[in-house]
Every structure is written in structure tokens, then in C-alpha cells.
């Protein structure tokens, strides 16, 4: 007796829903940085866990795609593993952890260290799509500000940071101006990754499931991180190399190693870290 088998539509969502999301995506790509409303659906994970990203991936994934999913830069965290398994089940696509092999990369925070190339799509799980939300709580007003290109308020936030801390203290979800027109929240990505958005060869699409918004940065688009002339945007930087693979110029996670507060700093991008470390081992072995 064979096990009971559920037949899923490819990508879990029904065709009508996928079409609706793709239409929304086309609009989002046509107006870079602009938040397009969409009819967010239920998917088999709780809102706030990446339902926006999952719906985007479901709508664009096809049988010739290769999927990579990362959470905090890592391929091996619970959420990343589960979502990868989910699409393997419902779309039957191969998955990978290697950045350059993936056609679709779903992420919560990071943009991989390995440069993205043409034809690749980054899918972001976005909690709060509205960059002006905490300064102006009225959605009617923030939409009007976007429509009329009135972004003085965003600078007030940066001004307040400098007045209070002496520098712009925002280190993640750092606001950007897309294509010299729309103010956009790059989700909770660290400001370290902001420069990777500028003139990227890949397509970046953002889905906020709970907030029912989709937006996008098409390839080769200008993405400017806001700043003042005398206090320009400065991405985070790290003094030391990765404690595991020795990479410099990469984003590091602090890992607490003992009860005394001892810590090490290691790559947040697990794929990059493992392969750099392996390469170093090989070179050592070869020499």
C-alpha cells in the first residue's frame, strides 16, 4: 500500500494567485522602489516568518530554477532549511547553497558575499515595507509623501541620529532612494549590504506578506543610501577578519563562545565561509 500522496500545484499557490502576484511584480519592476499593494494569501507558515518572500518565490519559481534560501546569511538555519524543503516538495526544484548556482535566492537579512550575476533573482522577506512608518504613522500621509516626492521627513530621522549620537546610527534597514525617485526600505538587511543594491546585475524583489506590499529593484538601477553632504552614508565595517575562514571585507556575526562573554566573529554568509575555508585547506594541502 503506497503512502497517501497530496498533489500540490507547482509552487503551492494556485495559478490565478501566481498570475496576480506576477502582474503586481511587473508593476513593481516598472516603477522601481514603489510599493505595489497585492492580495497577500495564506501560506503554510505564520505571518512574520517570511510569507511575503514565500509567495514571491512561489509565483516565479519554475521547473528549471535552482533555489537557495538563507536566514541571517546562513543556509543551515531552521527557517532556511524548512523553506528550501517546502519548495523542493511543492515545486520539485533542485536546491543549492552555492550562491552562483542559484537562480532564485530567498533571504531574510543578507545579500550573499559572492557577487550576484545577470539572471539571478533575490527575493526578500520584508516585515515593514514603509520607511517613513515610524516618523509618520498615517499610511494615507506616507503614500502622499511618496506620490509627491516629499522626503524631508526621512532626513529628520537621520538628523536626529547625528544630533543624538554624533553619527547616523541606523545600521540596518537603512533607507535608500531608488532610481532617484522612490524612498525604499531595504528590509532588515544590514547597511553593510546597501552598496550591493546599487547597479546590481540581479533583480531584487521584496515581499511583505502581512503588509500586503511588493516592490522591486530591477537590474542596473541606481540605489542611493541617504546621507548628508557632511555626514554621508557609511556602511558598517569590521576591523578583524572572519575567525573561521579569514575573509576580510565581509559581514561578521558575533558568536558568544563562553559564559564569561568571550566572543568570536565569523562570516554570516555560511556558503562563503565554508568554501573560503575549504579553499584555504586545499591550498595548504597542495603546498
Amino acid at each position: 500500500m503506497s503512502a497517501q500522496q497530496i498533489e500540490y500545484n507547482i509552487g503551492y499557490l494556485d495559478e490565478q494567485t501566481k498570475r496576480m502576484i506576477r502582474r503586481t511584480l511587473l508593476k513593481a519592476v516598472a516603477i522601481p522602489g514603489f510599493q505595489v499593494p497585492f492580495a497577500s494569501r495564506e501560506v503554510p507558515l505564520p505571518r512574520g516568518w517570511g510569507t511575503g518572500g514565500v509567495q514571491l518565490t512561489a509565483a516565479i519559481i519554475g521547473s528549471d530554477d535552482v533555489l537557495k534560501v538563507i536566514d541571517q546569511g546562513a543556509d543551515d538555519t531552521t527557517n532556511a532549511v524548512s523553506i528550501r524543503a517546502f519548495f523542493n516538495l511543492v515545486a520539485g526544484v533542485p536546491t543549492t547553497t552555492r550562491t552562483e548556482d542559484a537562480t532564485i535566492i530567498q533571504t531574510r537579512h543578507r545579500i550573499p558575499e559572492t557577487p550576484l550575476g545577470e539572471g539571478q533573482i533575490m527575493v526578500y522577506q520584508v516585515p515593514i515595507p514603509e520607511p517613513l512608518r515610524f516618523l509618520e504613522p498615517r499610511e494615507t500621509e506616507t503614500r502622499r509623501m511618496h506620490a509627491l516626492n516629499e522626503y524631508g521627513l526621512m532626513y529628520v530621522k537621520l538628523y536626529e541620529d547625528i544630533a543624538k549620537y554624533g553619527h547616523i546610527a541606523k545600521t540596518y534597514d537603512y533607507p535608500v532612494l531608488v532610481n532617484d525617485r522612490y524612498l525604499m526600505a531595504p528590509s532588515p538587511t544590514p547597511s553593510f549590504d546597501n552598496p550591493k543594491l546599487h547597479q546590481s546585475q540581479a533583480l531584487h524583489i521584496f515581499g511583505a506578506g502581512r503588509e500586503k506590499r511588493i516592490y522591486a529593484i530591477p537590474p542596473h538601477t541606481d540605489v542611493e543610501s541617504l546621507g548628508f553632504e557632511d555626514y554621508p552614508f557609511e556602511p558598517q565595517s569590521f576591523d578583524q577578519p572572519c575567525a573561521i575562514c579569514g575573509s576580510t571585507g565581509v559581514y561578521l556575526d558575533q558568536i558568544i563562545t563562553d559564559n564569561a562573554g568571550g566572543a568570536m566573529y565569523a562570516c554570516s554568509d555560511s556558503d562563503h565561509c565554508e568554501r573560503t575555508a575549504a579553499r584555504a585547506d586545499n591550498e595548504e594541502a597542495a603546498s
Binding site: L135, E150, G152, L153, Y155, V156, Y159, E160, I162, A163, K164, F228, E229, D230, Y231
Partner: peptide, 27 residues
Amino acid sequence: LRMQVSAGGNVGEPLMANGWRHYGRIR
């Protein structure tokens, strides 16, 4: 006024809205 924004930020906002982008001059 924006009650949670500093006095300087409150007065500076209209300048920023009009394209001022130099923190020192705004302040």
C-alpha cells in the same frame, strides 16, 4: 510640531523638505 523630534529637527525639517542636505548648515 513633531513632539518626539528635537527642536532643531523640528525647525530643520522644512529646510530638509526644501532640499537642504548639509547637516551643519541645517543645524
